[in-house]
Structures are given as C-alpha cells and as structure tokens.
C-alpha cells in the first residue's frame, strides 16, 4: 500500500469530516455572495438568480465572523449580555443541584417518600416544562427570578431522576454486607451510596446543563433588559441574521465548555474505580 493511501486511511475521519465542513461553509458563503448564481447562469439563465440569497436570509460565515469580532472586541456589547444571562443561568443551575439531587437521593432511599414524589416527577418529566412559563410570569414577574425559575424547572428533573435511579441501582449486596456489620444509615450513605451514584449524578448534570441553556433563551422571550436570549430574539426580530448566529454559537460554546468541565471532573472522580 502506498504511503499516501496509508496516511489517508489513518486520518480518514479527520480528513472526511473537515472536508464536509469546508464544503458546507463554501456552499453557504457562495449562496450569499452569489457565486452559484453567477456560475450557473449559462446553464439556467435568469432563474439562477434564485441562488443569490439576501444576507438577511442566511447571512454567511464571513459576515458572522465579522459580526462576532465586532460584538466581542470592538463594541464589547456581548459581554454585558453574557454576564446578565450567566447570572440567571448559574443561580438556576445551582438551585436545581441543591434541590434536585437531595430530593432524588432521598426519594431513592426512603420508599414512602418515593411513592409520594414519583408521580410528580413522572408527570412533570412528560410535560414540556416551558408550558409553565406564563404561570411563572404571573407569579414572579419577568425579572431575574422568572429566568432563574424556568432554568431551575428545566434543569431539576434530569438531576432528580438520575439521583433517584442512582440510589435504586446501588449494588444491594454491598448494602447488605455493610448492614450486617452494623453500619449506620449515615455510613451506608457516605461510603456506599454516594460513591456509586456519582456517575449518575454527573450524567444528570450534563443533561441539566443542556436543558438550562434552553431556559436561558426561552426565559428571555418576554422582554428582558439584556441577556443572550434577549439579544437573539431582538436580532431575529430585526432580521440581523448574523447577530442571531453569533448568539447561538456563543450559547453552544458555553454549553460545550461546561460539559467538558463536567467530563474532566468525571474522569478525575472516577480514577479510583476499577474498570468493569
């Protein structure tokens, strides 16, 4: 096998992936700049002009990059939105962790509590929680607390459900052994249940991070003074497509970074575990 083919096969994944992404970006840029319209004109005649799309319709990679540069480094306006949204997001997420995980753990441990809480969790989980948004607004208005509440509501369920499942799937033999050696409930919890439920909790946290991002955008639908979601909504309403893309990409970047952090923690915490 020639060396070139071997090199290609070794990096096939990267090569093909990059190629496709590049193709898409070029196709996209071409639609906005009218490259395709010009190129196909001899073939299709005037109907080729349909391939020349207005910037408000799809924007283009370079326009988006320019807008991003402007918003981050020239005017710096996005930092205010970012700070505003992060405050609500972090508060909501912390609240969800502080309530969801203990509730889930307790529900998994005490059967009676589980019977009481389970129907609510199941029902809430089947509902798109965003449907409660108008209610939340009636209750607390449209300020910071509204955004914190909707983010909390979205993020709390995966946390509680995973914590519940974590306790339920703890190896019963371990608990029985510890019980026969007279371990107290606290010792059981601290040395067996908690360590074995960590992977579930972190998986729940990863889900919660994604759900919370939805809350950032949805919570700012109804006129918020600042924030990434509000920025996206306003830019959309004004047909500033490039700014919409910048906002969406910023949210994606934030989500990816947070998930990466959780994964790092996961690997750290899991280092002692012997591979199954």
């Amino acid at each position: 096998m020639p060396a070139a083919v071997r090199a290609y096969l070794a990096h096939e994944r990267v090569i093909l992936g990059t190629l496709m992404v590049l193709l898409l970006l070029i196709a996209w840029e071409g639609l906005e700049r009218g490259w395709w319209a010009d190129a196909l004109r001899p073939l299709l005649g005037d109907s080729a002009q349909r391939l020349r799309l207005k910037p408000i319709f799809i924007s283009s990679p370079t326009l988006i990059a320019a807008a991003a540069f402007r918003m981050f480094f020239v005017t710096g306006e996005i930092w205010r939105d970012l700070a505003w949204s992060s405050a609500g997001y972090l508060l909501g997420l912390v609240l969800a962790v502080a309530i969801g995980i203990p509730l889930g753990l307790a529900g998994g441990w005490y059967r009676r509590l589980s019977y009481a809480v389970q129907p609510f969790l199941a029902a809430l989980n089947a509902t798109p929680q965003v449907a409660f948004l108008p209610l939340i607004i009636i209750w607390v208005g449209t300020g910071l607390s509204e955004r914190v509440l909707i983010i909390f509501l979205l993020a709390v369920l995966p946390l509680a459900i995973n914590a519940h499942a974590a306790v339920r799937t703890t190896d019963p033999r371990l608990i029985k052994v510890a019980g026969s050696f007279g371990a107290s409930e606290w010792q059981l919890f601290r040395t067996i249940i908690l360590p074995s439920s960590v992977p579930f909790l972190l998986a729940g946290l990863r889900l919660a991070i994604g759900r919370g991002m939805i809350g950032v955008v949805v919570g700012e639908i109804y006129g918020s003074a600042a924030g990434l979601g509000a920025m996206i909504n306003q830019a959309g309403a004004r047909f500033q497509t490039d700014r919409v893309f910048v906002g969406v990409l910023t949210i994606v970047a934030a989500g990816v970074i947070l998930v990466e952090v959780v994964q790092r923690i996961e690997r750290r915490v899991e280092i002692w575990r012997t591979p199954a």
Binding site: M20, T241, V256
Partner: peptide, 27 residues
C-alpha cells in the same frame, strides 16, 4: 465513511439547543 462525513454536523446540531434557532427559522 458516512459517519465520518455526516458525524460533525450531527454532533454540532446536538450541541445546539435547537430552540435557539427559532428566530432564524421564523425568518
């Protein structure tokens, strides 16, 4: 092969909370 080709797009879309695309979709 197909996965190498399409995979990046699926992963990207998976990372995007799809409702944030709503303003664009409405345009």
């Amino acid at each position: 092969r197909l996965q190498y080709l399409i995979g990046p797009f699926v992963d990207t879309l998976n990372a995007v909370p799809r409702v944030t695309l709503l303003p664009l979709i409405i345009i």
